[in-house]
């Protein structure tokens, strides 16, 4: 276990979620969202790129951002399960985005004091991006939660479906614990209160309730994913892998 692997986990989170949200491009419920969602996707992919690059350098085996993104299988991907969940509908997509951003905002704020200069650089940029994602996705959660009967039902379904992937956000893998001990990355478990506060404020306006007990699903950090990730990666990696060694 090493610090670079903790960065890889973070990079995978951002790439997989960025990829998921990019799947909407051209198919959004309104043109304005056809512009809003790619903005979020580009933020996430941008962060993933910097983190992959840095992880590759720390690993010291000459792996580039593309080597890391395109040449690992699902068992080697380290993202949390939340981000790989399929888009389903706009309610699922916005809630997933909101949950993730509500976690990453305080995470990056804490990372502003990282012992690692690159992480500090990413944090300075990403905390603002996440603040906006909270706002945009959060406003949609409110509108759908307190909109029509249909939208409220869909929003409740999304809450029910995604709830079981929340706890994993606050788990630290062995690699993450190493990075935390070294002062490179923030302690995940410490962010729970802030996350709960962000979510409960929005849920109050959205007339939504957080389900209480649920059996939390985990495993992403060990490469034990849901089946959806394999298909995402197959699609993402197909061209790159069909031409080994080619430049793009």
């Amino acid at each position: 276990m090493a610090v670079w692997e903790a960065l890889l986990e973070l990079a995978d989170d951002h790439l997989v979620l960025g990829h998921r949200i990019s799947e909407w491009c051209g198919h959004a419920p309104m043109l304005e969202e056809d512009l809003a969602m790619p903005n979020m996707g580009l933020d996430l992919i941008g962060t993933a790129r910097t983190l992959y690059d840095h992880a590759g350098k720390l690993e010291g085996k000459g792996r580039s951002e593309d080597d890391l993104a395109y040449l690992r299988d699902e068992r080697e991907y380290r993202n949390c399960l939340l981000v790989e969940r399929p888009n389903e509908d706009f309610a699922h997509t916005m809630l997933r985005q909101f949950y993730f951003a509500a976690f990453m905002r305080p995470y990056w704020l804490a990372a502003l004091n990282s012992a690692d200069a690159t992480v500090r650089g990413v944090a300075g940029k990403a905390e603002k991006e996440m603040a906006y994602h909270i706002r945009h996705a959060g406003e949609w959660v409110i509108r759908l939660g307190d909109g029509t009967e249909e939208s409220a039902a869909r929003m409740r379904d999304a809450v029910e479906a995604l709830h079981i992937y929340v706890d994993e956000l606050f788990d630290s893998s062995d690699a993450a614990r190493m990075a935390e001990a070294a002062g490179v990355l923030p302690v995940r478990a410490d962010l729970r209160d802030t996350w709960e506060r962000t979510v409960s404020e929005v849920f109050a306006e959205a007339l939504l309730e957080q389900p209480k007990a649920a059996y939390a699903q985990r495993g992403g950090r060990e490469g034990i994913h849901n089946e959806a990730l394999g298909h995402l990666l197959a699609e993402m990696q197909v061209v790159h892998r069909a031409h080994p060694g080619a430049r793009w």
């Binding site: 309104m30 043109l31 304005e32 512009l35 809003a36 903005n39 906006y132 706002r135 945009h136 406003e139 509108r143």
Partner: peptide, 20 residues
């Protein structure tokens, strides 16, 4: 110009559409 149901979403869409 753009379309939005309310002023909050109008402002966010303006940010996403016109300040990229």
């Amino acid at each position: 110009s753009l379309h939005a149901a309310d002023e909050v979403m109008a402002l966010q869409s303006a940010r996403d559409v016109y300040t990229r």
